[in-house]
Nucleic acid binder design. Structure first.
Length: 498
RNA sequence: GCCCCCAUCGUCUAGUGGACUAGGACACCACCCUUUCAAGGUGGUAACGCGGAUUCGAAUUCCGCUGGGGGCACCA
């Protein structure tokens, strides 16, 4: 890595950063991390975090996607100081509402002869590009329209061709990107081709719109994904043509899928909303994402947002790409679930149970939470931990009702006595249940595992369930006995065929 | 094809020439605890891609190679 001895924030300069998603899909974890780093940086430096929607791709941009991205950001707790729904002095914050700015800037560049009309059609360009690639040559634009005479232009226009505007890149020399995470990156200007800044339809392209907006919005630091590094020298040239010094750049690495390619749909759940629906907590998500490419030291990895703000710095951002895998996120989510106040966990659990079609009520969930809080990695997993509490009937495999190394008959006998004792138990609470059932196991010369296993299946239908005594207590005597009766029927049937 | 970025356990990472027999976390394995499952505790397996150079000394610096990724759109 080259020198990174660039000062993160020059003295006396207000920090203004932005997250600028294209609304062409959901917010995925890579975008979320970029947004998070921008947000942390802004908050750390008491700066301003701006949200700008880059919707100039009219074909792929959708309103629904804007809403989804806003929701995801809000869910993560990444609040923006300027942008959609909150406004700001340097808006509007949708690029489609800023067209006059791009047109004015383009106009100026045209007057100064820093851009030129290109009459090549998209089809022609595509064809030439593909031909070049087929010949294993560099596919860049060949600049054939750069030096057109007025006469040639007139001819082309007479053909009905609508020109696009291209930026005249310098033909020699080099452009250096001073990057806060990568040091100085050099590009030969020969590599920079004359990119289109305004399409024939009058709409700006990305590389032009970002520069104009970042100037107008007084952005001090551009923190974005590595995939934009190659665009940066071109953008620097545009800043220069517009007579404005470029901001500081920080290109953070990309987040890759398990197969080490750019994260995409086929990698499964990669959007923030997918994770929300799966029952991840935003606080876990934020903590985890912060640690993907950044570390505070060699020990700590649990941070509140406030602590992240306090410690975050671009200098410690890792330039190497990292792979997104849920394993650690799951663990961390479990940690956060366990840290939740029981009442809070109950609240968060409710929608998941409803979603699963269970008629869950807060009253019952509150009693359940202590039994399951440390048994969940994601909220959605709570459903199968407690569904039997909310169902009238439970289905299960009768074979499971047989205790370890026991016959159906022996199991039946044990359960029968259990039923009788439970019926007579004066107080049907956790403490008394435990006392009574332990004694019973003793009396029957069964191990705790044998007896409790039978009861667990009888009452929950599952081999894996919350702790038995608490479960019985919440279930209540009546329902517990009713289920045990049913299990006895099953066992009786099994015993007959033994 | 050209340009650019990157390279420490399977994964996230610590590490800026000697304190490294390379540390932590997740995952994995074993044991303990235990009514199942978790949680918790203890221990363990596991990495500096390769080759040169600089140096008394290199995970750390330089060069090359290899590997991975990204870009080369009238997408962003």
């Amino acid at each position: 890595m080259a020198n990174r001895e660039l000062r993160e924030v020059p003295m006396s300069k207000a920090v203004r950063v932005r997250f600028a998603p294209a609304p062409t899909g959901y917010l995925h974890v890579g975008g979320a991390r970029t947004a998070l780093y921008n947000w942390l940086f802004a908050r750390h430096h008491q700066g301003t975090f701006i949200l700008r929607i880059e919707d100039t791709d009219q074909v792929r941009s959708t309103e629904k996607s804007v809403g989804g991205i806003l929701d995801s950001l809000r869910w993560l707790g990444l609040d923006w100081d300027e942008g959609p729904e909150v406004g700001g002095d340097l808006g509007p914050y949708f690029q489609m509402q800023r067209l006059h700015f791009y047109r004015a800037a383009a106009e100026r560049l045209l007057e100064e002869k820093k851009v030129y009309f290109c009459y090549c059609t998209p089809e022609e360009l595509k064809e030439r590009r593909e031909a070049a690639l087929a010949r294993r040559e560099t596919p860049g634009y060949d600049r054939r329209c750069r030096e057109l005479s007025p006469r040639e232009r007139a001819t082309l226009e007479a053909q009905g061709r609508k020109p696009a505007l291209r930026f005249a890149m310098p033909l020699e020399g080099e452009t250096v990107v001073h990057d806060l995470v990568r040091g100085d990156v050099h590009f030969a200007n020969q590599q920079l081709d004359d990119l289109i800044i305004m399409r024939a339809d009058g709409f700006p392209t990305y590389n032009f719109a970002v520069v104009v907006d970042d100037i107008l919005m007084q952005i001090s630091h551009v923190i974005r994904a590595d995939e934009h590094l190659a665009n940066t020298p071109r953008q620097i040239r545009i800043y220069e043509a517009l007579g404005h010094p470029p901001p500081q750049f920080a290109h953070v690495s990309m987040i890759l899928g398990l197969d080490r390619t750019k994260l995409s749909k086929r990698h499964g759940a990669t959007s923030v909303s997918d994770h929300r629906d799966a029952g991840y907590l935003p606080e876990a998500m934020v903590n985890f994402l912060a640690l993907l490419g950044w570390a505070y030291d060699d020990k700590r990895e649990l941070f509140t947002p406030e602590e992240l703000i306090e410690h975050f710095s671009l200098e410690k951002v890792n330039p190497a790409p990292s792979i997104f895998s849920d394993e650690k996120l799951e663990w961390m989510n479990g940690v956060y679930i366990r840290q939740l106040e029981p009442e809070e966990l109950a609240k968060r659990l409710l929608p998941f149970l409803k979603e699963a079609g269970l008629e869950a009520d807060m009253e019952t969930i509150r009693r359940l939470v202590p039994l399951i809080q440390e048994r969940m990695k994601v909220l959605s997993a709570g459903v199968e931990l407690v569904d039997f509490f909310f169902k009238e009937e439970i289905a299960y495999d009768p074979e499971l009702l047989m205790g370890k190394k026991m016959t159906a008959q022996e199991s039946h006998a044990a359960l029968k006595v259990t039923s009788e004792r439970l019926e007579r138990l004066p107080l049907f609470d956790e403490e008394n249940l435990e006392k009574a059932l332990r004694r019973l196991a003793d009396d029957l010369s069964l191990t705790a595992g044998q007896l409790f296993g039978i009861i667990r299946i009888a009452v929950t239908g599952k081999k894996v369930a919350p702790p038995l005594f608490g479960t019985l207590a919440v279930l209540g005597r009546k329902r517990a006995l009713w289920r045990i009766d049913l299990a006895l029927d099953h066992l009786a049937r099994l015993a007959r065929s033994e």
